[in-house]
């Protein structure tokens, strides 16, 4: 699949935003339940605002991917069948909920409404992230995406980048950071594990669809003679994007190195000061953008088979 830069930016940015606000909301809920060392109201409000900006920037960027954005408002209408529509509806429901929650925090509202708003915000963030993953996982013609590891990966990577952002926000506010370093390291391990399992399962994926099932010639060897067009089509532009296997290997090693190893070393080797947290966030962001790029570039739509690829 051709990597669509607007979609890559959208999923990385809004994923981090949803992860950040989900973790903020959970920390707040734990604090209400009697936990100590949670973020202060000002920190929740500031972190929540950053999360909202990230989500909004991502959603706006996703509309750049549309060829006819005038009709984008119609995208909320097929909630019953379309994961893209569900993502839109939940993202739209998320905004007033999260804004209301942050307003309650800022106004110092009572325990009950605040806890309910926090829980609803967290759940909506989770559902929206899951919907994003399911847009890809629901596509049967792309074996690399048609996997339960895809929505799990979107959730894990969103929380991982959110946890690093939370650490940066708290470090910036001068809040004691050691539990949040552990939180970020925990999500780092989960996200890296999901991604490595995904890469391993992709390498062993055995596609059921072959040129024999595609042409209905079940036994004989079938080979493309002529593709029937002279200079590219929508199909070759969209689906026949290829990345060399050697480049993909190097790229995925870079994803692991920049996205996971550098933040890991940064968090383990030095006290979590603001520059260290920012370094971790920057490295993870570059890593996740690379990860999303290869997520597209390595996905092989079955229509390629008809093109002899």
């Amino acid at each position: 699949m051709k990597p669509a830069l607007s979609v890559i930016f959208f999923t990385v940015s809004s994923g981090a935003g949803f992860g950040l606000i989900a973790l903020l909301g959970l920390a707040d809920l734990l604090q209400r339940a009697g936990g100590a060392g949670g973020p202060s109201d000002r920190e929740i409000a500031a972190g929540g605002l950053i999360a909202l900006v990230l989500v909004a920037a991502g959603l706006l960027s996703s509309t750049l991917h549309l060829a006819n954005p005038r009709n984008a408002w119609r995208a909320f209408s097929r909630f019953r069948t379309s994961w893209l529509s569900r993502e839109g509806v939940f993202a739209l429901a998320f905004f007033p909920m999260a804004a209301g929650y942050l307003a309650l925090v800022e106004l110092g509202a009572g325990e009950g409404p605040r806890a309910i708003a926090a829980a609803c915000t967290v759940v909506l963030a989770w559902i929206t992230l899951y919907c994003t993953g399911m847009i890809y996982a629901s596509l049967k013609p792309i074996p690399q995406w048609h996997s339960p590891l895809v929505p799990i990966g979107y959730l894990a990577l969103g929380h991982y980048s959110g946890a690093l952002l939370l650490l940066a926000v708290l470090a910036c506010a001068g809040h004691p950071t050691s539990p949040y370093v552990d939180l970020a390291l925990g999500w780092l391990v989960v996200a890296a594990a999901v991604k490595l399992v995904y890469y391993a399962s992709m390498a062993r994926a055995n596609a059921r669809t072959t040129i024999n099932t595609a042409t209905g010639i079940s036994r004989a060897r079938v080979r493309l003679l002529d593709v029937g067009h002279s200079h590219g089509t929508f199909l070759t532009d969209e689906f026949c994007f290829s990345v060399a296997r050697a480049h993909a290997r190097v790229g995925k090693a870079l994803v692991v190195l920049v996205g996971f190893v550098i933040p890991l070393l940064a968090l383990l080797l030095s006290p979590a000061t603001l520059p260290v947290a920012i370094l971790a966030v920057a490295a993870a962001t570059v890593g996740l953008i690379l990860e999303r790029w290869f997520f597209f570039a390595e996905a092989r739509h079955v229509v390629r088979i008809y093109h002899g690829l």
């Binding site: 009709n71 013609p141 199909l235």
Partner: peptide, 27 residues
């Protein structure tokens, strides 16, 4: 054609390559 927003998702869901985006109308 009056409702399509040109998101390409249907073309991704089609294994036969039956759908093509028209660049000039965006649908």
């Amino acid at each position: 054609q009056d409702k399509c927003m040109g998101c390409n998702l249907c073309s991704w869901a089609c294994p036969y390559g039956a759908r093509e985006l028209d660049r000039s109308s965006g649908t």
